[in-house]
Amino acid sequence: MEPIKAGIVGLGRLGKVHASNVQNYIKDLELVAACSVVPEELKFAKESLGIQKGYESFEKMVDEAEIDAVIIVSPSSLHTKQIEYAFAAGKHVFCEKPLGVSLPEIEQVKKVIEARPEQVFMLGFMRRFDESYRYAKEIVESGEIGKVTLVRCYGIDPSSGLESFVKFAKNSSSGGLFIDMAIHDIDLVRWFTGEEVKQVWAIGNNFAYPELAEYGDTETGAALMKLKNDAIAILVSGRNANHGYHVETEIMGTKGMLRVAQEPEKNLVTIFDDKGVRRPCSEHFPERFKQAFINELTEFARCIREGDKPDVTAKDGLESTKIALACTKSFETGELVALEDE
């Protein structure tokens, strides 16, 4: 059976991860076209991945390339427009998080997606496809730890990327820390509890790079959330983990609790030397979630083949963005923010 032919837009750090995964690990997908406004990225696509058709215009790629699906890994502010264009052209779409940075635009694109049920749309919340998180989800759903009362999440990028992020924040429209990073943990809260959030209070600081405040962003942020069933969620997001890439989730229930990745261990190796006894840590998200990224695009291809619907939907993107924007508003105003009921 011939692989599903796809085009990708955006070949930055994560775009390269997805593109390389498709070409090397996902037999049911094949990238035949790539789009980027950066010449070096198109050169990478051609020379390293064998993608011969390169485009500077997303619309031109969708119109001219012989593709059935599009993988969107472009800046967050472009997502909704690109999804709409691809859907209008009859393409299946995988889009990285967030779905967008503006609620009216997200609500509009959600309508576009739902109006074409024959086309597959999937949003890139890759942690749902990590084996450890999936195992934890099974435990929670089995009732083994009882009713979930509190979820605590840490999501902190390595310090090695902080300086480049400051430059990115100055010139980007990522939406800020809560949209760009905490949205993964927000999705986990919704996924594990099956509940929506009704109140948030968020704070943050900029100690290593105070200039981030000038760009409306924050280096370390925390949010306290009250869910509709009165369960609690606590999120900590940041850009400054000196030991590596730190992602940790704790779920407390009425009968027990569980933790996922309490320590960001790279592997099972323990080193004994003049520095003592130590365990190497994961250095970045492509390493920690390597298999999860492969799993999610494998699922995308399966849904196209079988006419199935992915579990991650446009509604998940909308609700998570609502919560992230409420966190941003709370951070900016210093006030408790209530989310409106639908």
Rank of each mutant, 00 (worst) to 15 (best):
G256D: 07
A169R: 05
E283G: 14
E214D: 12
A301F: 05
S320W: 03
E59H: 11
P98H: 01
F300I: 11
K315C: 04
D273K: 11
D316Q: 01
K290W: 13
I26V: 14
V37I: 15
Q52C: 08
V70N: 01
L31M: 08
P210M: 10
T149F: 03
L268V: 09
S159T: 14
L103F: 08
M252G: 13
Y85E: 00
K266D: 10
G90N: 07
F87G: 05
I67Y: 01
E84C: 00
R259V: 15
V32S: 04
E163K: 09
D28N: 12
A169N: 00
K322Y: 09
S282E: 06
L49F: 12
E163Y: 07
R116G: 07
G253Q: 10
V200S: 04
L177T: 06
T193F: 01
E287C: 08
V269G: 00
L123K: 01
V200N: 06
S330Q: 05
L188A: 06
A213Q: 04
S237N: 06
A182S: 15
N21F: 04
V109W: 02
V32W: 01
V236Y: 02
F121K: 11
C327H: 02
D28L: 09
E250P: 00
G50I: 06
T218W: 15
G216C: 04
V189H: 04
T328R: 12
G317F: 00
L339I: 00
I139G: 01
G7E: 03
L177Y: 05
L235K: 06
I232Q: 13
F44C: 03
M1W: 01
E196M: 12
V112W: 10
S74F: 05
M1N: 12
R134M: 10
E195Q: 15
I304V: 07
N206Y: 06
W201T: 09
R239D: 04
H243C: 14
V140F: 14
G176Q: 07
I251Q: 14
I294Q: 12
I26E: 01
S330P: 04
D63N: 11
T298H: 10
A169C: 01
Y215G: 09
F44N: 01
K147V: 02
S282N: 12
E2P: 15
E319H: 02
A65V: 15
K5C: 05
G124T: 01
K329L: 03
L325A: 02
K16C: 13
N240M: 00
S74D: 02
A19N: 07
E56T: 15
A213L: 08
E118F: 05
D311F: 02
I113F: 12
V140T: 10
G175I: 04
D273Y: 10
V148C: 00
C35I: 09
E195W: 07
S330D: 06
G54C: 09
L99H: 04
